[in-house]
Amino acid sequence: MERSTLQAINVARAARRAAVVVTDLSGGASQVFLEGARLQPEWDGLIVEALRSGRAGVAAVEGRSLFVNVHLPPPRIVAIGAVHISQALAELAAVAGFDMTIIDPRTAFATPERFRAVELLAEWPEDVLPSRPLDRYTALAALTHDPKIDDYPIRTALEAGCFYVGALGSRKTHAARVERLGQAGVPADVIGRIKAPIGLHIGAASPAEIAVAVLAEIIEALRSRDATGRTGGTR
């Protein structure tokens, strides 16, 4: 493999862009194909299928043996709310191998002292997300209980096909949320993708325990995705 090929793969991975690397196993060159880039017709089927399934493997094309490797962006958690649960979730997410970003416009909560080794943005989700889009490799956990902060990222996550969308709040809080999202024109089946009350039912009580329940639910969603990488039909 050429060093420039290796660099191209790493640039794509750093930019959270899916990439397919095709290596000729008879000692030929490697080629990198990026998600969304225009493809020559002879490559179309192989690359599109690799991106769709996320599965690597050996393929025989015109008598040549090719190895097709797929680099999908690593799963990421975006938490809305620099709250107590997020502090514990940041620690757990790092251990479990997730990238994590926390967004909260309330500067009293979003302080570097409360959050050390995690990306923390003390801004409104409306201001952050357009330049840092959510994608289907992202889990969104809305943890503020405040519709002014939570509702926009929840809608955006549903539109982006995030593999997990969870929202903190009692059944009553969530019923009001469902009502608001419905009035805003979000279809009922899409609203139904929101995990609420958030977290697996393990009787979690403390903020740290709730963080465990949320992370477990995120892992469950990640590992039970269908071949297209989605958990439900949102687009």
């Binding site: 493999m1 050429e2 060093r3 420039s4 290796l6 290596t23 196993l25 190895f67």
Partner: peptide, 8 residues
Amino acid sequence: VYVERIDG
């Protein structure tokens, strides 16, 4: 396992 050198 495919083993290759990184060139360049």
